[in-house]
Computed example of a mutant assay.
Amino acid sequence: MRAERGFAPPGAPATLSGVSVKELRLDVSATPYGVQIGLTTLRDGLRGIGIDDSELPSVELVLAEIFNNIVEHALAETEDGVIEVGLQCTPNGLWITVEDDGNPMPDGKPPLGLLPAVDVPVCDLPEGGFGWFLIRELAHDLTYTREGDKNLLVFRMAVGRGE
Results as ranks from 00 to 15, higher is better:
Leu42Phe: 04
Arg43His: 12
Asp44Gln: 12
Asp44Lys: 14
Arg47Gly: 04
Arg47Val: 02
Ile49Leu: 07
Asp52Ser: 07
Asp52Gly: 03
Asp52Cys: 00
Glu55Tyr: 01
Pro57Gly: 13
Glu60Arg: 15
Leu61Cys: 11
Val62Ala: 10
Leu63Asn: 00
Ala64Met: 11
Ala64Ser: 14
Glu65Cys: 04
Ile66Arg: 15
Asn69Gln: 12
Ile70Gly: 11
Val71Pro: 05
Ala74Ser: 14
Leu75Gly: 03
Ala76Gly: 06
Glu77Ala: 04
Thr78Phe: 02
Glu79Tyr: 00
Asp80Met: 00
Asp80Ala: 01
Gly81Ser: 09
Val82Pro: 01
Glu84Gln: 15
Leu87Pro: 00
Gln88Thr: 09
Pro91Lys: 15
Leu94Asn: 01
Trp95Pro: 02
Val98Asn: 12
Val98Leu: 12
Asp100Cys: 14
Asn103Val: 10
Pro104Gln: 15
Pro106Thr: 10
Gly108Leu: 07
Pro110Tyr: 13
Leu112Val: 02
Leu114Ser: 02
Leu115Cys: 11
Pro116Gly: 07
Ala117Pro: 05
Ala117Ser: 04
Asp119Glu: 10
Val120Tyr: 11
Pro126His: 06
Gly128Glu: 03
Gly129Thr: 09
Gly131His: 03
Ile135Thr: 11
Arg136Tyr: 08
Arg136His: 12
Glu137Met: 14
Tyr144Val: 09
Arg146Phe: 03
Glu147Ser: 08
Gly148Lys: 15
Met157Leu: 03
Val159Met: 01
Gly160Tyr: 06
Gly160Gln: 04
Arg161Thr: 07
